[in-house]
C-alpha cells in the first residue's frame, strides 16, 4: 500500500548530520524479513524502518530478542496522521537498545480509510500497555490482543471520536452548546469503568436501580 504513496523525503531534514547507528540493523532486518520490509530512510540522522502490518509483530519481536539487536527498551509508541489524506496513517515505535546505545524507529503504514488495527506488543514490552491505550484513544487504532484496550485520557463513553485524527476539528465535532448539554446530562456517579463494574458484578448482582442508572448513562455491561 505504501508504495502507492509518496515516500517521506528520503534524506530530508538534516540528512547526513552524523553517522546513523541503524544501518546494520536495516541490513539484517531486510535479509531476514524480505516480505515485511518496505523501506528505510534516514532523517535527522535517525533510522526509520517501514514494515508491513502483517509481519510487524514478528519484526519487533526479533528486534527485541535477537542477540545482535537487543532493542530491549520501548521508548515510545504513537501514531502520525498527515495532513495529506493520501498518505498512510503510521503507527510509530521508537526502540532503543540500552546496552548497544542504538535507536531505531519502526513504522507501520495503515490506510486511514481502511480498518486501523495492528497486533499489540504488550506481550513484548509491558510499557506498551498505556501507550497503546493512548494511541487507541487518540487515533482509533485497535491493538489486537491488548489485555485492556480502553480509553485512557478521554473518559469512558466519550462519543465524539478520536481527537488527534486530522478529520477531528480542533474544538470537537459537537457545538459548545451540545458539549455543555452532554456534560450536564452526564451522571458522574455512573463513571466507574467497565472493569471496576465487572469486579463489582463478580461479587454479586447489581441492583435494578444501578442497572437503570448505568443504562441511562449509556453504559452497557459486557
Amino acid at each position: 500500500m505504501s508504495e502507492a504513496h509518496p515516500d517521506l523525503v528520503p534524506g530530508g531534514a538534516g540528512a547526513g548530520d552524523g553517522a546513523t547507528d541503524g544501518a546494520d540493523t536495516v541490513t539484517a532486518l531486510r535479509a531476514r524479513f524480505p516480505d515485511g520490509f518496505v523501506r528505510a530512510v534516514v532523517m535527522s540522522g535517525q533510522t526509520v524502518v517501514h514494515v508491513t502490518k502483517a509481519s510487524a509483530h514478528a519484526i519487533l519481536e526479533w528486534l527485541q530478542q535477537d542477540p545482535a539487536q537487543r532493542f530491549d527498551y520501548l521508548t515510545d509508541l504513537t501514531c502520525v496522521e498527515y495532513r495529506d489524506p493520501e498518505r498512510p496513517l503510521e503507527v510509530v515505535y521508537q526502540l532503543r537498545s540500552l546496552s548497544r546505545k542504538a535507536d531505531v524507529r519502526v513504522k507501520i503504514p495503515l490506510d486511514p480509510q481502511g480498518p486501523l488495527d495492528v497486533q499489540s506488543v504488550t506481550d513484548l514490552w509491558s510499557g506498551a500497555n498505556w501507550l497503546e491505550r493512548e494511541a487507541w484513544d487518540m487515533f482509533g487504532v485497535r491493538f489486537k490482543d491488548h489485555p485492556d484496550l480502553r480509553r485512557i485520557l478521554m473518559w469512558e463513553g466519550y462519543a465524539e471520536g478520536f481527537p488527534l485524527r486530522k478529520s477531528f476539528p480542533l474544538r470537537g465535532h459537537w457545538s459548545r452548546a451540545e458539549q455543555t448539554r452532554q456534560a450536564l446530562d452526564a451522571n458522574p456517579e455512573a463513571y466507574y469503568s467497565l472493569e471496576e463494574l465487572s469486579i463489582a458484578e463478580a461479587y454479586g448482582e447489581l441492583p435494578a436501580d444501578v442497572r437503570d442508572r448505568l443504562a441511562k448513562a449509556g453504559k452497557v455491561l459486557p
Partner: peptide, 10 residues
Amino acid sequence: KPPAGEVYLG
C-alpha cells in the same frame, strides 16, 4: 519553517 522530515529527541 523546518524542512519536511521528522525527529525524536529525548
